[in-house]
Design a protein around this nucleic acid. Structure first.
Length: 583
RNA sequence: GCGCUUGUAGCUCAGCUGGAUAGAGCAUCGGCCUUCUAAGCCGAGGGUCGCAGGUUCGAAUCCUGCCAAGCGUACCA
């Protein structure tokens, strides 16, 4: 359509009706209302002022200059000056043949041309099992990856494991303290320690294997440690004191062993949960690697050479405010320790060095939004184009059970784990619900609704459409009715009801929906599309009989619903949701 | 205080980068099963698109100012 208008415009420029400098980007949009044809252009309205003609008059002129095209049935002027294109229905029907021929490839494209993209998501600290808050990022990241692959990008998923830093020391110490309980010691567990039952499990298993080798008397452990908050002290100082004590009493080797014990157990748990959730990674990247191989020093040196670092009050600062951040940031504390941000700078440098220099995607919790400018600044300072970094924010989901809000408290360790969620609502509903809404919006996740196997569950609505089609196709065979796909394609003109025309029209839009969802990182468009497609199908199903006596008509309809089936399957596959053949 | 994000039907949300009469689901009400799965379909009601200005042929969409909510504003990770 754009090409047709382009030609018309060229003709009119030659005739001096228009001048080339007036011509905007010619856009053609799909119409919302079938009365307005299939496509519409606002070109005449855009040009009206410059051409000093009324939009409708100008539209008239443009239309007469339009070249003939077989796929266009008619062109009309409507409203304030829209040019509406009505597509020849027979050319629309070709989509059915396309879908059946392409099968699982229908909707895929090569827009990405094999460009490398790295998608990093979840990256939760390995200090406990994943909870429902992580689920949304997990599904969002994996669906984005699948979508980008579908449009031709070479996508690598990565999980950044924060296995260095204070939180991990708190975990190791928590495991040790629980282990001491296994040894029969009694004491007040620190209020800032990890209190979840999983820590006890890890400690118990460790105790069963190691027995008493790591055991110390509680009074010795707590001797000289600042008191905890409930006793009027500071919980941070208390836990830090315990960490130092653990390291001192156990010695380097044994401390490392118990540290490793907690880390591997929890990481195995996280991997298993994600895998069960349909999320798989190409690469697990460990923060400790950056510490060990000197990447952090390298990164800081690079920033320093480029003149981005300075010293103040004993600390080393990164002058990020010169690069768009609100203020400068500390990278080396006055005690000589590097900050988490320093690791992140090194990590991003590492990503660039590994060849992900075209596009890097980070999926973060929305509460980290303030962190974006400083990472962008770091990218720029490292000599990369910070536009290559896309940070996608995911808002937390709020769990409901019916009208009742489900309370989540990480501190007490009594949060809802991702595994619980999957057990309760199932993989399909969980994934579907998480990507149903725009990711940067709050999501109300209703457990009751997701588990309901009745009227109002959107997952089942879509799956039901698929199952119904399967059922019809099965019964065609069981009843011994003939099927000739080619005959169906040859007679596509028999598709004449409004339901059939809109269904065919919607199928044709699927590839653009995939493209849009992928390029804008908005999987919810795909979800909405699938709901619409299921809706159109259910309507059609109720309005027409498919297994009719007329063999030609039957073949045509079999082809149409099989194409719908294929499209639903392709879409659900991208979401990682299953297609049950019967419900 | 400053920054980011958000405000659309009773509720939960779409709204395709400025288009035509603002759309779904849930909830409410009324219809449709002797024929391919009623986990479905059809219909009805329900809106000052937070408020007020501005930009233009045209604004839920862009700009400004208010109002309200969430998040962020560490030598934490």
């Amino acid at each position: 359509m754009v090409a047709l208008l382009q030609k018309a415009v060229e003709v009119l420029i030659e005739q001096s009706v228009l001048q080339s400098e007036w011509i905007p980007d010619i856009s053609v949009e799909r119409t919302r209302d079938a009365q307005h044809g299939n496509f519409a252009s606002n070109l005449a309205m855009m040009l009206a002022k410059s051409a000093k003609k009324s939009p409708r008059q100008l539209a008239e002129v443009i239309i007469t200059a339009l070249p003939e095209d077989a796929s266009v049935e008619k062109v009309e002027i409507a409203g304030p000056g829209f040019i509406n294109f009505f597509v020849n229905p027979n050319s629309q029907h070709e989509i059915i043949a396309d879908v059946l021929r392409l099968g699982a490839s229908f909707g895929k494209s090569n827009i990405g041309a094999g460009q490398k993209i790295q998608v990093e998501f979840v990256s939760a600290n390995p200090t406990g099992p994943l909870h429902v808050g992580h689920g949304r990022g997990a599904v969002y990241g994996s669906v984005i990856s699948e979508l980008l692959r579908a449009v031709g990008y070479d996508v690598a998923n990565e999980y950044y494991v924060n296995d260095a830093g204070r939180q991990m020391d708190i975990l190791a110490t928590s495991v040790w303290l629980r282990y001491l309980e296994c040894c029969g010691q009694t004491f007040q567990f620190p209020s800032n320690g990890y209190k979840g039952a999983y820590v006890k499990d890890i400690a118990r298993q460790f105790f069963d294997r190691i027995n008493q080798d790591f055991c110390f008397v509680a009074t010795e452990v707590y001797d000289g440690v600042p008191v905890d908050e409930p006793q009027g002290g500071d919980k941070e100082q208390h836990i830090d004191g315990l960490i130092i004590k653990a390291q001192a009493l156990l010695g380097r080797e044994r401390y490392a062993q118990i540290f490793q014990e907690g880390l591997t157990a929890i990481l195995a748990d996280i991997r298993a949960d994600l895998s069960a959730f349909g999320v798989d990674y190409q690469h697990w990247f460990f923060e400790s690697l950056l510490v060990e191989d000197g990447s952090i020093e390298d990164a800081l040196e690079r920033l320093d050479k480029a003149g981005h670092l300075y010293k103040k009050e004993g600390a080393t600062w990164f002058a990020s405010s010169a690069l768009g951040d609100e203020k400068d940031r500390v990278v080396v504390r006055d005690n000589g320790q590097t900050t988490y941000f320093a690791s992140d700078i090194a990590y991003h440098m590492n990503k660039l060095d590994r060849g992900f220099d075209e596009r890097i995607i980070n999926v973060w919790g929305a509460d980290h939004h303030g962190y974006i400018p400083r990472v962008r600044a770091a990218m720029t300072a490292l000599g990369a184009n910070s536009d290559k970094l896309d940070v996608l924010l995911v808002q937390f989901a709020v769990l409901y059970r019916g009208d009742e809000k489900v309370q989540m408290s990480t501190r007490s360790g009594d949060f809802v784990t991702l595994r619980h969620l999957c057990d309760e609502v199932g993989l399909d509903a969980a994934r579907f619900f998480y990507v149903m809404r725009k990711s940067d919006q709050h999501l109300d996740f209703d457990l009751k609704l997701a588990t309901s196997k009745t009227n109002d569950n959107p997952v089942f609505y879509v799956q039901y459409a698929y199952a119904r089609i399967c059922s019809v196709l099965r019964q065609r065979e069981e009843k011994g009715l003939s099927r000739n796909s080619q005959q169906g394609l040859d007679n596509s003109a028999l598709l004449s009801t409004d339901h059939e025309i809109s269904l065919v029209g919607l199928l044709a839009r699927y590839p653009e929906v995939v493209e849009r969802s992928a390029l804008k990182y908005e999987p919810h468009h795909l979800v909405h599309f699938l709901r619409d497609l299921a809706n159109y199908f259910h309507t059609y199903y109720n309005a027409e009989q498919f297994l009719v006596d007329d063999a030609k008509l039957r073949d045509v309809r079999m082809n149409l619903i099989e194409a719908v089936q294929q499209c639903l399957a392709n879409g659900l596959a991208l979401l990682g949701v299953s297609c049950p053949e019967a419900m």
